[in-house]
Design a binder for these strands. Structure first.
Lengths: 250, 250
DNA sequence: GTCTTTCAGGTGTGATCGCACCATGCGCAA
DNA sequence: TTGCGCATGGTGCGATCACACCTGAAAGAC
């Protein structure tokens, strides 16, 4: 998911207003949207962020088919915000609408996968390299915590928590330096391979990824940009390699 | 005002029963790229592409404010497809909605500009390098034509044609190899700096960009990947430098 | 004349309705 | 029992209406 649009609205992350959320399901009775809480983001935005989260954490399986009305009911909004949110994700190649019939995750071809991998290897090590000087002790602490959550999720068998922790780990690094454009590009990539990343979890070799994270942490402590870039590079290459092993479509 | 279903089903005049129709387009089983018949793209798609074109060719000025209803009237569609298209562009950071009041091009800060430039320099030379082996004589011919159109537009004083030709030139190179993901990322970047690129036109130094294009063409003829990457790199750096010279917001 | 107030118009957002399309399945006929 | 045809339900897309909000300028008060 998107990391707090720093330069825009100072509005708090809105990550956890479940209380108000439950109280204000505008799901009105015929009459207007009411929308009395001006601080709240738009419904479209909320749905958009929720779907992004689900994609990045692999909660939307590649084969599954979605529908705007179905999602609307599930998220307790009208189909309208869902339609808009889905449209945005379609523009980002994160979803696809097939012949105006159903919504699903785009197929993964070998060529597309290589393309995706190439882009990641181009952007992410560089993003990490650039961000390194901006990683402060507080940041490092968060990184270690994310890494611990990741280890725990491997032991505990919580796939979704694993995905979330992995996402947190990477974007805590990249996001240390406020380079929104590059961050956004990388997020777009994660949106696309996220659903497929799920198969990595629990696979032989997943443990290796932990080593890469350890190497990254060590590189950060030593302020060694090259070592950090290499650790990220290897983490990506190995992780994506685990996906690539499973037979792709074509 | 507009009269309804224009773009929809022109007519089934050919009287082709659905059964025989299935003969031509092999309805791919299950999921696949498929690329539904381009004949009847949705209105949203049409508006989306039109707005993208306008952004990339600098036809939407940084300062200008847009409105859904205004665009709808201008493009002769209802506000609905415009709203969706704008939403997609907002997701790509190509447009912005200010406090639910008006739509405009996002402000360009120095940091954002540097970020954008950095991403371009990371992706585009590499995209060109990768595409080089796939550039065939027919492609090269198109490239030369685009370059000639670009020169002509400088003489003729047609800013929009200049922008379009420049876009064509770059994406003819990158697109020689079908790497859709990387292409999409680069397009996202162009969408963001496009409106600001306009100020480059006619500026002192614009002629230098022509030299870079000539160098690129020569590199392609000689199949020199490094030289091509360097030409693209320099072209970007100089072109963006021309933008950077003009006082940015902060 | 200047300042305050109000109101009208316009905006993005959300809800609801209608349409063309397609897949599935029930019912009728062979 | 087996096969075909039509009806029904569900889909995405587009249009239209309703609402909260904000801005601009005109109208009023001093």
């Amino acid at each position: 998911m998107r990391k707090t649009v720093v330069a825009r609205v100072p509005e708090p992350s809105a990550a956890v207003p479940p209380g108000t959320e439950a109280g204000a399901p505008v799901r009105a009775s015929g009459i207007g949207p009411v929308q009395d809480d001006p601080a709240s983001e738009s419904l479209t935005e909320r749905v958009y962020r929720e779907l992004r989260l689900r994609l990045v954490t692999g909660r939307i399986a590649p084969g599954a088919t979605l529908s705007s009305r179905g999602l609307a009911q599930e998220l307790d909004v009208s189909p309208m915000p869902v339609r808009e949110a889905v449209g945005r994700l379609v523009a980002e190649s994160a979803l696809e609408v097939h012949s105006k019939r159903y919504i699903c995750v785009p197929a993964m071809t070998r060529a597309r996968f290589q393309d995706l991998l190439h882009c990641r290897l181009l952007l992410e090590p560089e993003a990490a390299r650039l961000a390194l000087p901006f990683i402060e002790p507080a940041h490092l602490r968060l990184l270690v915590e994310a890494d611990e959550r990741l280890s725990a999720s491997l032991v505990g068998g919580d796939a979704q928590k694993y995905m979330q922790s992995n996402f947190d780990f990477h974007f805590l690094i990249y996001g240390a330096r406020a380079q929104l454009t590059m961050l956004h590009l990388i997020e777009t990539l994660w949106l696309q391979f996220g659903p497929w990343m799920r198969v990595v979890y629990g696979r032989v070799g997943t443990a290796h990824l932990l080593d890469r994270h350890k190497q990254a942490l060590q590189a950060i402590r030593e302020a060694d940009a090259e070592a950090l870039a290499k650790a990220i590079h290897d983490d990506i290459a190995e992780g994506m390699g685990l996906i690539g092993l499973t037979g792709l479509d074509p």
